[in-house]
Amino acid sequence: MFALIVRRLALGLITIGLVSVIIFLGVEALPGDACTAVLERDAVGEALEKCRETMGLNTPALTRYGAWIGGALHGDFGLSANGQERISDLVGFRVRNSLLLAAGALSVGIPLALCLGTLAALRRDTWVDILFSTGAILAMTIPEFVAATLLILIFAIWLGWVPAIVLTPADAQPLEFFPEFILAAVVLTMLMVAHIMRMVRSSMIDAMASDYVQMATLKGVPYWRIVFRHALPNALLPAINVIALTVAWLLGGVVVVEVVFNYPGLGRLLVDAISGRDLPVVQAITMIVAATYVGVNLFADILSLALNPRLRSHQMRVR
């Protein structure tokens, strides 16, 4: 068991290491560098040389990679392209804001998805199931910006219940976001619920059709006890990894939604940085998001290992 966790951890670290290499090389391969971006048209001759020297861009790539990754390990991603701001300061509040949004969506979304998925599975092929499943497909297939736009149209413009976009600055107190970020959270919750619900539904259907649920019925176990004690724990095991993927996506990849609602999170900063060709910031954000992705998946792996007795001993035997 312990050895298995260590193995997973090592794999996760290797992946993060590879991500950092890909990001570094990716940026490296692009034409131009931070100096050409800052100096723009002045990026010729002496000025360029001088700038490169001050930013340490003349040293070999390996050295720069080492310095970058070394700093990143301490939470220090250096300066932004214009040389004015520390990236860690820039990113800090944005990370918090993105986490805030994710927490809002997750705290409602996961319980809701589990309930809806279970219910749809138990009422399989009835109108409840059809309604939920169709809803899920719609939520999954309609692009985020479309859903966001429609919600704004309905709830902010026609009904006037909530503000359409977020105007609060990035470094405001968490509570100050409250009425404004609701719509953004709703869009994310919808998407997340749709994905997790479908997964829970199908694995719950499998569980309810299993021999052990049939046996439990024929042992006279009451229906709801079968659902909660026999079927659900088994159905949730394969769902853990899907939930993890969704969470990872929530924590990092919600660029579009943040842009639509003008929400000062990591995603919007990323778009701004890309538009402004602020490559150090792009690198930093990518690294943070990738690390979160790997971390969350790692956590899910370890969690399902801990919860699934079959997986636990199976893996040990295979090794």
Binding site: S210, D211, Y212, Q214, M215, A216, T217, L218, K219, G220, V221, P222, Y223, R229, H230, P233, N234, L237, L307, N308, P309, R310
Partner: peptide, 28 residues
């Protein structure tokens, strides 16, 4: 009624299934 069935099944009327490996709940 479902209540009566629950009382009888597994009580006075027992079943031994074909494939016990799959008929026992794996997480319990």
């Amino acid at each position: 009624s479902p209540k009566e069935l629950q009382r009888i099944r597994g009580g006075k009327l027992g079943l031994i299934p074909q494939n016990s490996g799959q008929s026992l709940t794996p997480t319990l």
